[in-house]
Design a binder for these strands. Sequence first.
RNA 1: GGCAUCGUGGCCGAGUGGCUAGGCACAGCUCUGCAAAAGCUUGUACAGCGGUUCGAAUCCGCUCGAUGCCUCCA
Length: 493
Amino acid sequence: MPLYESQVLRIYNSLTGKKEIFKPINEGHVGMYVCGPTVYSNVHLGNCRTFMSFDMIFRYLRHLGYKVRYVRNITDAGHLVDDAEDGEDKIAKKARIEKLEPMEVVQRYTLDFHNILEKFNFLPPSIEPTATGHIIEQIEIIKDILAKGYAYEVNGSVYFDVATFNKDHEYGKLSGRKLEDMVANTRELAAQDEKRNPQDFALWKKAEPQHIMRWPSPWGDGFPGWHLECTAMSTKYLGETFDIHGGGMDLKFPHHECEIAQAEASYGQPPVKYWMHANMLTLNGKKMAKSTGNNILPGEIFTGENDILSKAFAPSVVRFFMMQAHYTSILDLSNDALLASEKGFNRLMDAYNALKNLNTGTTSDFNVNEWKQKCYDAMNDDFNTPILIAHLFDAVKHINLIKEGKEQITEVDKTLLLEALNSFVFDILGLEQNAGTSQDTEKLSQVVQLLIDMRKEARDNKDFATSDKIRDQLAEMGIQLKDGKDGTTFSIQ
RNA sequence: GGCAUCGUGGCCGAGUGGCUAGGCACAGCUCUGCAAAAGCUUGUACAGCGGUUCGAAUCCGCUCGAUGCCUCCA
C-alpha cells in the first residue's frame, strides 16, 4: 500500500487562499510544473530558494509513493528588458555586450544553473523543456486563441484581449485583482501603443530588423510573448488540466494570471488544481539587488569569496538554513543566521552518525513510531519543514542521551529510527554529509584514530602537555575531539 | 497611489482563540586533569493603538514599517 493512502497531505492553494487536502487528478500520479529561470545571467540565490522548495516538494511527493512528472522549463527566449530602447531582449542584450551568439549566452548560464543546483543536491526534473524548442506549440495556441476571439493582431503582433476575456471569465482571480481597479489605476497616456487596452499582453511580438532571436509565423517574423511558453509546455507534457503549478511569489502577477487566461481562453477550463507560490529571500533584511550591492551569488557563498559573510558555507548548510523556514514565508539570510544553521546542521549530522554505533537495550525510552508520525504530520501540513526539523532535534536529544547511557533503545527501534532519519534528512530534505572521497575519508579517520590513541596514552600517563597539544592542534585544523563514555570520537568541521 | 504577503524573546524561525515549537547565542549545574562535546535548568516574546471575547500573538479596524507585483513595458 503506497504511503499516500495513510498520510493526508494538505497544500496551501494560492488560488483559494486555503489549505486543501491534496487529491491528484489521476490517482497515484502527480503532474507538477514550476516556472524555471531565464538564462541570461548567473542564477539568483532567491531563485535557488524557490526551486529548492519545489525540489523538497517533489521529493516528498515521491516519498509518499506518487509517480510524479515534474516539469521545470528553461526560458531561453529572452523577454524584453524594461529599459530597452528598441525592443531588445535580455538574452540578446547580454549577447551584444559579451559579443556572443544568443545561444552561447543561453548555454553558458544554463550550465551555471545546473552546476549550482547540483551542488545544492537537487533532483533533476522529469522534463526540462526550453521555450525556443516549443515555438510551434506556442504558435498553435495563438491561432486557437485568435480563432476563439480572445486576441487580436496589430502590425504583425498578436495581443491577448483581456477586456473581452473578462466578460465571460474572471481575470485576476489568482492575484486578487479586479480588472476595473486596474483600468482605473492606469494612466491615460498610453500613447503610440498598439494595444487596445493597457492590460492586454503580447502573445506574439513582431521582431524589429535588429532583433536577433526571431521565428517565422503566420503574422510575420517575431517571437512569442513571455507568458505563452509556460502554457504551451505545461499543456504539452501535463495536459490541459494538471495538479500543481509552482513558482516564485513575484510571478503570481502578471505571469501566472496570464497563464490562466491563456489556458482558459484556449481550452475552456482552468489549467491548474493547486497553485503554489514560494516566498522571497532577503539579504540582511533587505531585498537583493545588484544595483545596491546587496547581492550574493550561490557560488560566492560556497567559496567564501564575498564581502557579506565571514566564511564559506557548504551547500548543505545553506540548504538546511532554507529548510528551517517555511516555503511561504519571507526568509532573511545573514551571516549570523548561517552560522547558527551550520552549528545546528553539524549537531544533526553528528547525532545521525552516532546512532549507527549505538548500543541497544531491552526497552526503548523513546517512542519511535509516535515520533515518526509526528514528522509525517509536519510534512503533511503544507510541507512544514521547520516543524519537521524541530522533531529531528527531538530525536537528536534522545540519541545523545542513549549514547551517554541515560536512556536506552531496542535493536528494532534503532533500525526504525535510522530508516526514518534517512528518509527525512536525506531523501526528503535533500541534505548531504560533507564528506570527501570515501577513500581519503577512510585514511583520514585512521590517522585521527591513531592520534586519539596516542592522546589516551599520554593522558593515562598524566602527560597533559602532550595530550592537550594533540587536542588543540587538531582543533586548529578543524578536527574536533569529543570525549564520551565509551572513548573519544571526532568530527571534521 | 493600488493589490498581495508579512511584522514573534539577543539572532533566525514555527505557531490562527486557552496548553513548553525548534535551532543558535547567553547564564548556572552535571561530566572532565582542564576544556570541548553531551545532558539538565533558566528566558513568559508576539510592531503600535483601539475593538470582539470569559479568554487573542492568533479574529476585526486603524496607524506605522518590511518585502513582492502593478501604476511606463512583455
